[in-house]
Write a protein that binds this DNA or RNA. Structure first.
Length: 431
DNA sequence: TCTGGGGTCCTAGGACCC
DNA sequence: TCTGGGGTCCTAGGACCC
């Protein structure tokens, strides 16, 4: 049997852990730059707040201030997630973390008679230790466990744990489960299924396998088999968490026109990519920079562009990545465009230990030096906080009113951020 | 003024090879 | 009259996920 633990309205629940006064208050969490709604509490959902709603529209729709909004606080969410995962690892034979708020549990050896009680106890323990409500679905396959967890979340009668143990329970659950809510069935496929009159998960699972395979390819067939009780999706390989491509991109709070300003952002994204690469002990072969105008402003000239550079020798040093990225930006930058978004992506990611040096350009001494600089950088920033030491090119400069001094400014708008309760001492006052 | 930021896998089609 | 056949690798784009 497979378990799926899923936090209820994760970001919102995180915000509530240290704000019990907001337990029943409609609450939303906003994207970077306080752009739009990315998470909603149950109360906010009930009031009809839709996911992705721009924040300014939320203020228009609910001007009375009854809905509390937070900027996203990924430090807090990441830390609470880590605590929950640790509890799961303490309790379950094997845990495969799937996302910041979800994990699959391998339940071999957990007594099947007591599975339901075991699950209820697990959810209660997570709540007691972290203050975070979680739901658990247990079933013969991952996709079915996902279905079960939905029921666990929806109906309080399950006491947070829904066990789908036999054929009767499976059919009953799938019968009233909308096909578009099945894990692995997205907008396109569900639209195609609706056209054929397939609206429930059970109807989909009852289609002929060959037909599903032909029309929806291997991934569709996998979902079909999972719904029929076969555990075929392999996530175990995912647990080596090394990413194959790494991207850092942001929208800007306003719009930018100058290359120098774009360059500061691009330098930061490149530096972020370098840190992410080094953290997973990888190097990359290629870096891609992209810039975009504001797609929502049809009255302005639109321009999207990207360019890539392949390194002679794969790298993860901040210097090389920033340098290459800025040169790429020069190539694609056009004057007279109002830029809204930019990003840096690294690909061809491989192990830093199996590095293949270029035959002609390899300079061992220079390489070693660069890597020492990065090691020192990571060490300082690890102890003193991210971005304690950065390259000059990463500094967002804001001139003082008299124009004499320049100060470092935060490039992301997070006006409504909660304190870093769990990671920064003194970030809030204790009563 | 104002609209997120990451990832993965699969398939089709082109380039290239013998 | 009348254009081979089979294979691999790479890339772009689509579909999905959180």
């Amino acid at each position: 049997m497979v378990g799926l633990v899923d936090c209820d309205n994760f970001f919102c629940s995180c915000e509530r852990v240290f704000r019990p006064d907001l337990a029943r208050v409609p609450l939303v969490v906003l994207s970077n730059n306080d752009g739009c709604v990315v998470a909603r509490s149950a109360e906010a959902k009930k009031m009809g707040v839709r996911e992705g709603l721009p924040y300014y529209q939320l203020l228009e729709q609910f001007p009375d201030g009854k809905i509390v909004a937070f900027s996203s606080n990924y430090t807090l969410y990441g830390d609470l997630s880590a605590r929950i995962m640790q509890i799961l690892r303490d309790e379950a034979p094997d845990v495969i973390q799937y996302s910041i708020d979800e994990a699959f549990l391998v339940l071999d050896g957990v007594g099947e008679d007591g599975l339901k009680q075991w699950g209820e106890r697990l959810c209660a323990k997570v709540l007691r230790y972290t203050g975070m409500p979680v739901s658990l679905g247990i079933a013969p396959s991952k996709t079915l466990a996902k279905v079960a967890s939905r029921y666990a979340k929806k109906y309080p009668g399950y006491r947070k744990c829904c066990l789908m143990a036999n054929e009767t329970q499976r059919r009953k659950a799938l019968e009233s489960f909308p096909v578009e809510d099945v894990w692995g069935i997205g907008r396109r496929i569900s639209a195609s299924l609706q056209m054929q009159g397939v609206t429930t998960a059970l109807q989909f699972a009852s289609l002929p396998k060959d037909m599903v395979r032909k029309r929806y390819h291997v991934t569709g067939e996998q979902t079909w088999r999972e719904l029929n009780g076969e555990d075929v999706i392999r996530l175990e390989c995912m647990s080596d968490t090394k990413k194959k491509t790494i991207m850092t991109s942001r929208s800007f709070p306003g719009m930018l026109t100058e290359m120098a300003d774009l360059g500061t952002h691009v330098a930061n994204y490149a530096a972020r990519c370098a840190v992410k690469l080094r953290r997973q002990q990888s190097v990359c072969e290629m870096v891609t920079v992209f810039i975009q105008s504001n797609h929502f402003r049809e009255d302005l000239l639109q321009y999207d562009a990207s360019a890539s550079h392949t390194f002679a020798t794969a790298t993860a040093t901040t210097g090389e990545l920033v340098n290459a990225s800025l040169r790429l930006l020069e190539k694609i930058y056009r004057q007279g465009i109002y830029y809204k978004r930019a990003g840096v992506m690294v690909s061809g990611v491989g192990s830093a230990l199996a590095l293949q040096p270029d035959l002609f350009e390899f300079n061992p001494a220079e390489r070693a030096k660069q890597m020492n600089v990065c090691a020192a950088l990571d060490s300082i920033n690890g102890r003193m906080g991210a971005d304690t030491v950065v390259l000059g090119a990463q500094q967002y400069r804001q001139k003082s009113a008299d124009g004499k001094s320049v100060k470092f400014v935060n490039a992301i708008r997070r006006a409504l951020k909660s304190p870093d309760y769990t990671t920064v001492l003194g970030s809030f006052e204790v009563c």
